[in-house]
Design a binder for these strands. Structure first.
Lengths: 211, 211
DNA sequence: TAGATTGTTAATCGATTAACAATC
DNA sequence: TAGATTGTTAATCGATTAACAATC
């Protein structure tokens, strides 16, 4: 299998292919898709698609293309999305709130991705104890015990920049393995903890260059 | 000057350096920073920092490092952030709302980035006509006339996937030059319109691989 | 001055693209 | 079968890293 042999740059594109297939599925297209069509819908070249898919070991059919349900299942398997993945969000400001709703709407319902939001954390006494769509907001001080109790290994950080590294440290000590950080700071984590930084302001500034 | 000669991968890192410098500034650190310190805070190697900064033509001082205010101003100039940049958001769901608040809090106040949110657009009659922090929500049907009237050239799309391409087409025909897309679809735009896609679900799926 | 750090060049590394034999 | 498209290899392209002379 050799999971670590798939380059990260390829892994980053697999969810995009998966997203395209899910959308096709909903619109109930043809049962097969060529690297040309898939590339067009994903915004990459056909050669790129074939190269990427060769890493996951998916088998297309020459002359036809890829079977949509087969490829979709294969991509989900590689991305671990064939199991339920529990996620928690730390920081329930407007961004954390929006992310919570996004995950609940996009995953908890009809799709079978099984990305499930199991807990929210905040430090504000007014928020702690309340719910968003049935998901409780816990106090951040209880994070260390709640993580193993609720069984999530993936966390979204949506707290102010000043608090982010402290929150990250709590995650690390609680054994969290993957973190998606929305705070506008580069967070440090030891080897073995995967951190992905998404900063809206960085994206906006990047685009500003091209104006 | 040769703006187009700076690779996009470098442009993407410049806002990160700028963010580091702004944070330093607030904490009123030393007046100079070496490529080692800057790299550490930005999460890249010192060699990378020096290579990147050599593209913008910034001048550090051997034996010392880079003057923080000089480098900050230089980065802002290259990224067009020395002028006011007007932005509009299309789609005022919870994500659009959160992005609106984020931009208003982060840019409109004490900082001098001058990224300014000038308009919001939605199709819901309940939302149209209301305000968020003094910024009006217009009907999407008025987009074409509002764009030149309010003078924004950059747009954030935060509408559902199904509506996103249609909204993008409206942007293109209204002369928008840069789009930050949060809808989970790859949007097509003609040459000359810069599109940057950020999809929370793609990031989550990417991280899921490493669990 | 001596120590430190830049800017830049050359070497390495990795990713994308092109091309085509295999084959559905 | 003929036409189309895959999977893979080789060629190209670009980005990162290492190293070091220049110099503050």
């Amino acid at each position: 299998m050799g999971k670590q042999s798939i380059p990260d740059v390829v892994i980053r594109r697999l969810p995009i292919y998966l997203r395209v297939l899910e959308n096709l599925y909903e619109d109930s297209y043809s049962n097969v898709i060529s690297s040309f069509e898939l590339g067009d819908l994903a915004g990459v070249t056909p050669a790129q698609v074939r190269k990427d898919l060769s890493f996951v070991g998916a088998f297309g059919k020459q002359g036809l293309g890829y079977e949509v349900p087969t490829l979709r299942d294969e991509l989900k398997r590689v991305l671990n999305l064939d199991k339920e993945i529990k996620v928690a969000i730390i920081g329930v400001g407007s961004l954390g709130h929006a992310i919570a709703r996004y995950i609940m709407e996009r995953y908890d319902t009809e799709r079978d991705y099984h990305l499930r939001l199991v807990a929210l954390f905040d430090s504000s006494p007014e928020k702690v104890g309340t719910c968003i769509n049935g998901v409780h907001i816990h106090h951040i001080d209880n994070f260390h015990s709640k993580a193993p109790e609720l069984g999530f290994r993936m966390v979204v950080i949506a707290v102010p920049a000043k608090a982010a590294q402290m929150v990250m440290d709590k995650c690390v000590s609680a054994g969290i393995e993957a973190v998606l950080n929305f705070a506008p700071v580069h967070l440090k984590a030891p080897e073995g903890v995967r951190v992905h930084n998404t900063d809206l302001s960085v994206d906006l500034m990047h685009l500003a260059y091209y104006l």
